[in-house]
Design a protein around this nucleic acid. Structure first.
Lengths: 125, 125
DNA sequence: TCAAAGCATTAATCTAGATTAAGATTTCGG
DNA sequence: CCGAAATCTTAATCTAGATTAATGCTTTGA
């Protein structure tokens, strides 16, 4: 399991994506531009490296899945409350919840660990 | 110039992307799943249609650019204030500003038109 | 030419979630 | 097994941006 994240100008981490088994993990920043993401393993992982510029070797379907995931992620950040994002996350990625500490889930959802604690206490209507 | 947007459960529109000349506009929702986005033209436009499932006909580079744009959009929504997002937008897409009404810029930035008005009044440090 | 509708701005409140600060609970090296 | 450090939770405040509402400013079309 890998994670990618930015560190903002206040030094705060924001998790961009988790990558469990068989996922492609990448910083999509254009070539010749400094990358924005940090990537590290949060479990022991076996990783295959693909050189920058060899993106055509990745299965098209995986790229299309990524586009879908990112579209959903943007819409989620724009339209939904913290509670709705949390509920969507546990429904969509139930496996990941088991493997990742709360504070990283919070970071991925774009909220603080405190806010996540509060939200978890809520009766999900 | 096209725009794509969702309508949330409260009936509110949220603009996902603008597409000026030569951009690919798509709803990346997986096949056999109902689309999420509405797309319409905000200027007279000449549009080329690509059938769903023929994504391999799109230049790889355009797909990679899209990935980069979406990555930046997610990070922007997670890390930046309304003012920062606005400043980034006018720097990155100065042409679009000229062609699109304020309220659509606000929607794209994930804020209300009122908040955008306020933010524009601010001395940009 | 003028009324009506849509658009932008300003200002007064309100609220989801941030921040701050304590506890409580789990994890883990030695 | 124990103590220290990290993690999670709870609660009190604070704040960016939402909501509401009122006031002008463009369009537009009849």
């Amino acid at each position: 399991m890998l994670r990618s994240y930015v560190i903002d100008e206040k030094g705060k981490e924001h998790i961009f994506l988790f990558a469990p088994e068989n996922w492609v993990m990448t910083d999509s920043t254009a070539r010749n531009t400094p990358c924005k993401l940090f990537i590290d393993a949060i479990e022991n992982s076996e990783v295959y490296i693909l050189e920058k510029g060899k993106e055509d070797k990745i299965e098209l379907q995986k790229i299309l899945n990524r586009l879908e995931a990112l579209q959903n992620r943007v819409l989620m950040m724009m339209c939904s409350t913290a509670l709705e994002r949390y509920e969507h996350f546990i429904k969509t990625y139930p496996k990941i919840i088991q493997r990742v500490p709360q504070r990283m889930i919070a970071s991925y959802l774009g909220i603080t660990p405190e806010a996540l604690s509060k939200v978890k206490g809520k009766p999900k209507k």
